[in-house]
């Protein structure tokens, strides 16, 4: 059974503010969902491999980059706040 305190902890780890009404509904819903996916623990299977997945990584050479500043302005213009060539945020170091 997941507790309301754990939900608060999860919300904080996930960087999400939850209202106190939501804490109640999320606790109930998340508990039911975790109870459902818990049946995975009972699956009797011989793992095909020791790793988490048989999927493989695909790598490529680090080449073919676009030219410097080509997309800078288009990307920066999507930022909620900017100053010159920078994305502007709240002061980080107090």
């Amino acid at each position: 059974m997941i507790s309301k305190t754990e939900i608060e902890k999860l919300a904080s780890l996930a960087r999400i503010d939850v209202t106190s009404a939501e804490k109640d509904s999320f606790t109930k819903q998340i508990d039911a969902i975790l109870g459902y996916v818990d049946q995975l623990k009972q699956v009797v299977i011989a793992p095909i491999s020791d790793t988490a997945s048989t999927a493989v990584n695909v790598f490529r050479e680090d080449v073919g980059a676009h030219s410097s500043l080509e997309h800078t302005d288009a990307l920066l213009s999507e930022a909620p706040d900017r100053e010159g060539q920078y994305v502007k945020v709240q002061k980080i170091i107090a």
Binding site: I7, L10, S12, A14, R15, I16, F26, I30, L34
Partner: peptide, 22 residues
């Protein structure tokens, strides 16, 4: 961050983000 994500994401998105974090 927390205010933007609370306001910007709907209930299902927030549930799944928390479940994924778990």
């Amino acid at each position: 961050y927390v205010k933007t994500r609370a306001e910007g994401f709907g209930a299902e998105a927030r549930r799944r983000i928390m479940l994924g974090t778990y």
